[in-house]
Design a protein around this nucleic acid. Structure first.
Length: 267
DNA sequence: ATGGTGGTCATACCA
């Protein structure tokens, strides 16, 4: 069977419901993982997703900030919402996606952005980001009682030189500092996770999933970063058939500053 | 060195 999963930082699911629906109608992934839903659980627009055939929905949201949601055509089992750094932010949700052929544990993450100053001694937000990454070491690719594991979401770090528009100009910019990129790559490898986007798109090739709202013309200046990721357990590497970064979504009406990233597998 | 845009909630905070 074919299985597809999309990760998308939507920057308010209620404001952007029209483009989320348009995306699902056209691309129809089996699972959609959203971040920055900015939506309390009791106000999540579940009905709109059910109408499209996504009957299995797990949310972990709060008012105004953060928030993740996993929306699926297949049953979701054993959902967990983890707390990181002893702060009750809604930044993580995991569940088993029960496809007919394989059970996949899917972790959906929204890693702290980290503020502007990349110095943990003077910037508590950056310290929080580094502490959060340390705690992510507790989530290895071992699928446990499932068959396979995925970790997707907005990790707010662009690890490779080709994950940013200018490696040199971003070395001191939060999201691409050596402490962040090295910590992320180290925890990924220690956890046994494969960077599935980079398995499919060679590291020589630039890939961006985010473009700032502040650019005069995001498309012309193209100062993007790869902040959104799809990691998988080793057994999923040979099953991967494609990665699509939907750049055109950045140009849609009232866009998110992130675009959807879809991974397709053949089990 | 600075401010640029956008979302939330209602005044600054966060990205």
């Amino acid at each position: 069977m074919t299985f597809s999963i999309t990760t998308w930082n939507i920057n308010s699911v209620r404001l952007r419901l029209p483009i989320v629906i348009a995306f699902l109608e056209k691309y129809a992934p089996d699972v959609l993982c959203l971040q920055e839903t900015k939506c309390p659980n009791d106000q999540f627009p579940s009905g709109a997703f059910r109408k499209l055939g996504y009957e299995h929905i797990e949310v972990h949201g709060q008012k105004g900030y953060h928030g993740v949601a996993t929306i699926s055509r297949f049953p979701l089992e054993d959902a967990n919402r983890r707390t990181f750094c002893e702060i009750d932010d809604t930044r993580h949700l995991d569940a088993i996606v029960r496809t007919p052929d394989r059970a996949v544990r899917v972790h959906n993450f929204y890693v702290p952005a980290g503020g502007d100053e990349p110095n943990p001694d003077i910037n508590p937000k950056f310290a929080h980001k580094l502490a959060f990454l340390d705690e992510m070491r507790n989530i290895p690719a071992d699928p446990g009682c499932a068959d396979s594991a995925l970790l997707v979401g907005d990790l707010n770090i662009a690890p490779l030189e080709t994950d940013v528009w200018s490696h040199k100009q971003l070395l001191k910019v939060v999201s691409h500092t050596p402490i962040e990129t090295e910590t992320l790559e180290d925890l990924r490898l220690a956890g046994g996770w494969a960077d599935l986007m980079r398995n499919h798109i060679p590291p020589e090739e630039k890939i961006f999933t985010w473009w700032s709202y502040r650019a005069r013309d995001w498309d012309v200046s193209d100062r993007g970063r790869r902040l959104d990721h799809v990691w998988g357990s080793a057994d999923l590497e040979p099953a991967l058939r494609g990665i699509e970064v939907l750049r055109e979504a950045r140009g849609w009406e009232k866009p998110s500053d992130h675009v959807p990233v879809t991974a397709t597998f053949e089990f």
